[in-house]
Design a protein around this nucleic acid. Sequence first.
RNA 1: CGAGAAGUAGCUUAACUUGGUAGAGCACUUGGUUCGGGACCAAGAGGUUGCGCGUUCAAAUCGCGUCUUCUCGACCA
Length: 474
Amino acid sequence: MKNKSITSRDVDFAKWYTDVVQAAHLATYSNVKGCIVMEPNGYAIWEKMQQVLDHMLKETGHQNVCMPMLIPENLLRKEGELVKGFAPEVAWVTMGGNKELEERMCIRPTSETLFSDYFHEVLKSYRDLPIKYNQWVNVMRWEKETRPFLRGREFLWQEGHTIHETKEEAEQETRNILQLYRKFFEEYLAIPVVTGRKTEKEKFAGAEYTLTIEAMMYNGITLQSGTSHYFGQKFSKAYDIKFLNRENNWDYAYQTSWGVSTRMIGGLIMVHSDDNGLVLPPKIAPVQIAIIPIKQTELVNQKINEIEIALENSTMTYMVDCSEKSAGFKFAEAEVNGIPLRIEVGERDLQEGLITVVRRDTREKRQVKTSDDLLLILQEMLDTMQQDLYIKAKERRDQLTFDAHTFEEVKTIMERQPGFVRAMWCGDEACEAKMKEIRGTKSRCILEDAKPIDDVCVVCGKKAKHLVVWGIQY
RNA sequence: CGAGAAGUAGCUUAACUUGGUAGAGCACUUGGUUCGGGACCAAGAGGUUGCGCGUUCAAAUCGCGUCUUCUCGACCA
């Protein structure tokens, strides 16, 4: 039994994706071009992500702040590379009334400039360092092509901005955050990621280097899912962020920034979900258990009441669907919304002292004795499902990861079925550009600690410098 | 931003070729019967046909413009 309103994933992946977004009531198109309305089911996932990540960030010494949404033009223009990188996507604000009195401003596409200006104001001494701030805000980038969650003109994210006394400490922060993101993806979102360094061409405008986590979607397309940038002293020199060091000399601070966005929701969908709708890893699902009465008799209601009381004293989240819909409708509804477990409570089972628990991902039904420890069983099932989703995603990822030794090989692989292609690269931008001819293949990241698989560049045949993961991106 | 396609009730759509009262299914409301995989019967409500201009006695239908969405490119941490 397949969901009627969802195009099959194997027939048309793009259509399937938007069908799932809408059928699960995550978001709907708004009348503001390129902007979506995040509906309760979608926003709840974001809140859950925020809750977990925010905790992880605070545990590692970060504090939340909030910067203005508007950036004056002169402030934005101080760091040249950043401006060049973002110029085409920046939205400018026009003021009503007497325009001559107003300074031209843009809506933040990212907040390095604001944080830098602030750091310039407050930083005096090495004793003030490190400063590790984060903000949960919306940003605006005037994208030409948009897709719900994956690329929008306005989106929500967290952006961390830190300054440090030494190069080593700032670089350590850049790496630590990358590991924090990796942990969040693997342990909570159940999404395996490849981590590494961006090439010069693909790095953040204005960064010394960019570290990235790259996730593979079910169809083999890559989603850049989070980045952590090391700025060195580039911004601190442009914005004059300096302090008196331990030797009583002026020094420029070493800076980082990093972020993940609502794009993660898109990734979550495209890695785990299926033709019946959304599949959510239990640890990130806003509601973990749906309790469904087959028919609301006295006996059924009484049992549900008992279960509710038990669940109230656990950490599991649940909902009871006591709408007037038929049982089958409620099953389908719980599935399309991606609720990890469903408890079916009906007369027939209860007569035999049973209730039925169903897993969303496998749709496997399990009969549980009412005398058994239900909470323990539910928690076990949630844990198993969490693990299974990760294993399944990893198997899919590994299956679509290939080593290539020649340009022709890369071409054959990408034209047959996109995925991650590991291939050597000489470091020359011309070779990187040449790869784009194959269905827009781009470097995803340089694998810094990996063993080389060959001596020569897959494109030009000259001596290779790096092992690079290549892919087609969203 | 370029090429193509499409906009009719919340959704999917019919009528458009050949201009003449906009019709259905799903969803919704009410009442009743149901309930172990998207129930059934009956009644009801819901439309300035995306928007603007033009042609015409008359426009959902023809023409022009515009906006939005989708697909493919280009662009894009």
